[in-house]
């Protein structure tokens, strides 16, 4: 496979954002080397499908739309009642595994890895930064590690995943990526922001 071109390639500039010279309270970077596969099932047989997937991926499947399951490099989100997103490193052989598992009519598998750009916001004020646009309560009690939410930031649909105490991954549709990046780095100016190289 040829290399995917990052949607942020033209605007991505590592370094400090803005003139505020206090310590950087937020670090932003793109998580470029990720892939994403959607698996959908049907109301009557979704449980069974999940059990097959658990065997296939050697990993539990999420019970609800509130918390992801993260194991190793993979994170699995239940984005709808019978719909899963499996995110993994770009060399993850997810599609091959699904194709080989003969899931038949019980599953619909869709590769959507090119459709999302993933941005990591980390640091003490990452939560403050996201809440400049995100109408989701990110307090630890309401949104612990591995909690996720599909919502909207400045009219742009996002999936926000808490990957650590102060680390969040934001999945945004690729065509919005530049706009989202401009919004994010703009909103981060007052907080003290560092952009580091893509991971």
């Amino acid at each position: 496979m040829p290399e995917q071109r990052s949607a942020l390639a033209s605007v991505y500039k590592p370094g400090r954002v803005g003139v505020y010279d206090g310590p950087a309270q937020v670090v932003l970077f793109e998580r470029a080397n990720r892939t994403l596969v959607q698996v959908s099932g049907w109301p009557g047989s979704f449980r069974e499908l999940c059990r097959k997937l658990e065997t296939l991926l050697a990993c539990r499947m999420p019970e609800d739309g509130l918390k992801a399951i993260s194991q190793g490099q993979r994170s699995i989100f239940r984005v709808g009642p019978e719909r899963l997103w499996v995110a993994g490193p770009s060399d993850d052989d997810l599609l091959m595994r699904f194709d080989g598992a003969a899931l038949g009519e019980e599953a619909v598998v869709t590769e959507i890895g090119h459709s999302r750009t993933i941005v990591r916001a980390a640091g003490a004020e990452a939560r403050t930064l996201l809440n400049r646009g995100l109408p989701i309560d990110l307090d630890f009690t309401a949104f612990p590690v591995d909690a996720f939410a599909q919502s909207v930031i400045h009219h742009m649909p996002v999936l926000v995943h808490r990957v650590g105490d102060s680390d969040f991954d934001v999945y945004v549709a690729r065509d919005y990526a530049v706009s989202f990046w401009e919004w994010l780095t703009g909103a981060a100016r007052s907080l003290g922001c560092q952009i580091s190289g893509p991971e």
């Binding site: 609800d64 739309g65 509130l66 009642p81 109408p135 919502s151 909207v152």
Partner: peptide, 9 residues
């Protein structure tokens, strides 16, 4: 499925 959310969603 998702819990209590803002109207904007």
């Amino acid at each position: 499925f998702c819990g209590e959310r803002d109207q904007v969603e």
